[in-house]
Design a protein around this nucleic acid. Structure first.
Length: 331
DNA sequence: AATGACATCAACCGCCTCAAG
DNA sequence: TCTTGAGGCGGTTGATGTCAT
């Protein structure tokens, strides 16, 4: 017996979300909190599948989401975590709470894959002795590097799980980057207006000036979206400035910030299980894309260099310490 | 200016996990 | 123990934007 569809496919609307739909979803979640997604379309009157509502919330409307281009640090974190965890985007995203798994996945597929490929080609080009890069790096070397990596990760993990290093979060200069709610105003200059902010302002505006129901249906979304964009651009501060968000929406959106983001649902137990699973399975790391491949990843000398050079050796360490600690702090 | 190729990313699909009954 | 269904996840698609010719 096949499973019934999660939604009545006939009456379900597909495609891009409209501002009005966003408002309805956000206002409902603000009132009831995220969860029980099945009831969301019913209670909001949205002609959307519950999954679609959840996805829209977690990937787009949820507060604290950082949008726009990835920083080099984030790139390196993703590459490193991908090497450790494989294509487990949700797990990777748990270390970058400002980014959604979808965002990371997209970024990996559209940017980082190419970047790594290019680096790999560069490495091959540099091998002038006729040997392939995979031949030029002995398996022993790789195992040692892997062991070092695993050792570092394990150590960081055990430290993080011991919960006696609360300061590791604040000590890390990078931590603020990874924790949206502890970052009052990181000047991450971005011209991209976070839609979460827009929706937040939009909703705030909407709540302050509840339109009459009839007019609202047609005009509110459009005009308030405009307002929100205007606010965003005229507020003076960076449009991506989380501080601006909390300042302008603190009354209306305090409750938002008490939510556990669904993206952070990965408990540290499960994360550690993830890591342990990977770290203790000798050949599970670097196997293929989803199961990283030792062979395929061999020409990483340049990539590693890129990951580790110009002070990023510290990043490398920070990454593991910070991100694992980060996870513990979050959960 | 037109158009075709390529890039990006929001959203969908289908499978998996796990808790509740 | 088995069944059911909600929620979660990763892979993929398709609409849209951008660039090159």
């Amino acid at each position: 017996m096949g499973r019934p569809p999660c939604c009545d496919k006939i009456s379900v609307k597909k495609g891009p979300w409209t501002p009005e739909e966003d408002i309805r979803l956000v206002s409902y979640i603000q009132e009831h909190g995220p969860g029980n997604w099945r009831s969301v379309p019913i209670n909001t009157g949205l002609l959307r599948c519950s999954k679609s509502c959840r996805l829209r919330w977690t990937n787009y409307l949820r507060p604290g989401i950082k949008r726009g281009s990835f920083t080099e640090k984030e790139e390196k974190m993703i590459i490193h975590l991908q090497a450790l965890l494989g294509n487990r985007w949700a797990a990777i995203a748990s270390y970058l709470p400002q980014r959604t798994d979808n965002d990371i996945k997209n970024y990996w597929n559209t940017h980082l894959k190419k970047k790594l490929k290019k680096l790999q080609i560069d490495v091959d080009g540099q091998n002038q002795d006729g040997f392939s890069s995979s031949q030029s790096v002995s398996k022993g070397q790789w195992e040692r590097r892997l062991q070092t990596d695993i050792g570092m990760a394990k150590q960081a993990l055990s430290e993080a799980l011991s919960l006696d290093k609360p300061n590791s979060l604040t000590n890390s200069k990078d931590f603020s980057l990874s924790h949206p709610y502890l970052r009052p105003s990181q000047s991450q200059a971005s011209t991209y207006a976070s839609s979460a902010e827009n929706i937040s302002r939009l909703l705030e505006n909407w709540m302050k000036n509840p339109p009459n129901p009839a007019a609202h249906q047609i005009n509110s979304a459009e005009t308030m979206t405009q307002n929100s964009f205007n606010n965003t651009t005229t507020a003076g501060s960076s449009s991506s400035d989380e501080g601006a968000l909390s300042a302008t929406t603190s009354e209306g959106f305090d409750s938002f910030f008490s939510f556990n983001s669904s993206n952070s649902d990965v408990s540290h137990e499960s994360v550690s299980a993830d890591l342990n699973a990977n770290l203790t399975t000798e050949n599970s790391v670097f196997q293929d894309e989803s199961k990283p491949n030792l062979g395929a990843q061999v020409p990483l000398t340049l990539i590693e260099k890129w990951l580790l050079d110009d002070g990023s050796a510290q990043d490398h360490e920070d990454l593991i310490n910070m991100s694992l600690g980060d996870s513990v702090g979050l959960y």
